[in-house]
Simulated scan of single mutants.
Amino acid sequence: MKHTLLALASALVISQSVFADEQRSISKTFSQGASHELAIEFPVGQLDIQTTEGDNIEINVVLKPKTDDSWFSKNVELDKIEIESKQRGSELYLTIDNDEIQQEWSVKVPKSMALDIELGVGNVEVESLANSADIEVGVGKVRINSHENDFRSIALESGVGKSHIKGFENNIEYTKNMVSSDMKYRGQGQYTIKVEVGVGDAKFEKI
């Protein structure tokens, strides 16, 4: 009996190691064309966005089976998963709608495109934002930095967590309850930032 249990335990460890090491990378390039907004939506993972002076959207996504506390990992067929893209008017919409995998997105986007992001669980980071953005995260963190002053409004809302706007000293409104935190900035610019985090922190920093 002991030998059987040891063999089973060894098989489980080996199986989990195989699945843990398994991953797939997908790279795509889209021409901006007539698109004025980039929308990205997926269930679980990490999204890193960097703005560029170019006119292409460059996407790299690393897919991994989602780890959990169960003994048996799910055998996800990563080679059959692709990025789904749709052109919706002036918006380019990208998604991988699969909650059995962990997704790590690295995106380079033209500065001339606004952002519309929705993530279930995970973190979003945006470097050198120079446009409008609407970001919603269920559980996780959002961090945005920008060199711009050209904002009409910045609104950060955290249901359970902290919100923080750095680099704007005037026209700031801050509301904190027992667990929630809201912070708003009003300016004379053209761009708007709206961030909603259910559980976690939201931060905007002018650098």
Rank of each mutant, 00 (worst) to 15 (best):
Lys2His: 09
Leu6Tyr: 12
Leu6Pro: 05
Ala7Asn: 13
Leu8Gln: 07
Ala9Phe: 15
Leu12Trp: 06
Gln16Tyr: 13
Gln16Gly: 11
Gln16Met: 11
Asp21Trp: 13
Asp21Thr: 13
Arg24Leu: 12
Thr29Val: 15
Ser31Met: 10
Ser31Gln: 14
Gln32Met: 15
Gln32Asp: 11
Gln32Ala: 15
Gly33Ile: 05
Ala34Asp: 15
His36Tyr: 07
Glu37Gly: 05
Ile40Cys: 02
Ile40Asp: 03
Glu41Phe: 08
Gly45His: 01
Ile49Asp: 00
Thr52His: 03
Glu53Ser: 14
Gly54Ile: 08
Asn56Cys: 12
Ile59Phe: 04
Lys64Arg: 14
Asp68Lys: 06
Asp69Trp: 12
Glu77Val: 11
Leu78Glu: 06
Leu78Ile: 05
Asp79Lys: 08
Glu82Asp: 11
Glu82Met: 05
Arg88His: 11
Glu91Phe: 00
Leu92Lys: 03
Leu92His: 00
Leu92Thr: 01
Leu92Asn: 01
Tyr93Cys: 05
Leu94Ala: 02
Ile96Lys: 05
Asn98Asp: 14
Asn98Leu: 06
Asp99Ala: 07
Asp99Ser: 11
Asp99Trp: 02
Glu100Gly: 04
Glu100Leu: 11
Ile101Gln: 06
Gln102Ala: 14
Gln102His: 15
Glu104Leu: 11
Trp105Leu: 04
Ser106Gln: 15
Ser106Pro: 07
Ser106Met: 15
Ser106Arg: 14
Lys108Ile: 05
Val109Pro: 02
Pro110Asp: 08
Ser112His: 10
Ser112Leu: 09
Met113His: 09
Ala114Gly: 12
Asp116Ala: 09
Asp116Lys: 08
Ile117Met: 04
Glu118Arg: 10
Glu118Tyr: 08
Gly120Gln: 07
Gly120Glu: 02
Asn123Trp: 07
Asn123Ser: 13
Val126Phe: 01
Glu127Val: 04
Ala130Glu: 06
Ser132Phe: 01
Asp134Leu: 12
Gly138Met: 01
Gly138Lys: 00
Gly138Pro: 00
Asn145Leu: 04
Ser146Gln: 01
Glu148Ile: 01
Asp150Lys: 02
Ser153Cys: 06
Ala155Tyr: 09
Val160Pro: 03
Gly161Asp: 01
His164Glu: 15
Ile172Cys: 03
Ile172Ser: 02
Glu173Arg: 08
Glu173Asn: 10
Tyr174Asp: 15
Met178Ala: 14
Met178His: 13
Ser180Lys: 07
Ser181Asp: 11
Asp182Gly: 10
Met183Phe: 04
Tyr185Asp: 03
Arg186Gly: 07
Arg186Lys: 13
Lys194Asn: 15
Val197Cys: 08
Gly200Leu: 04
Ala202Gln: 05
Ala202Leu: 02
Ile207Asp: 12
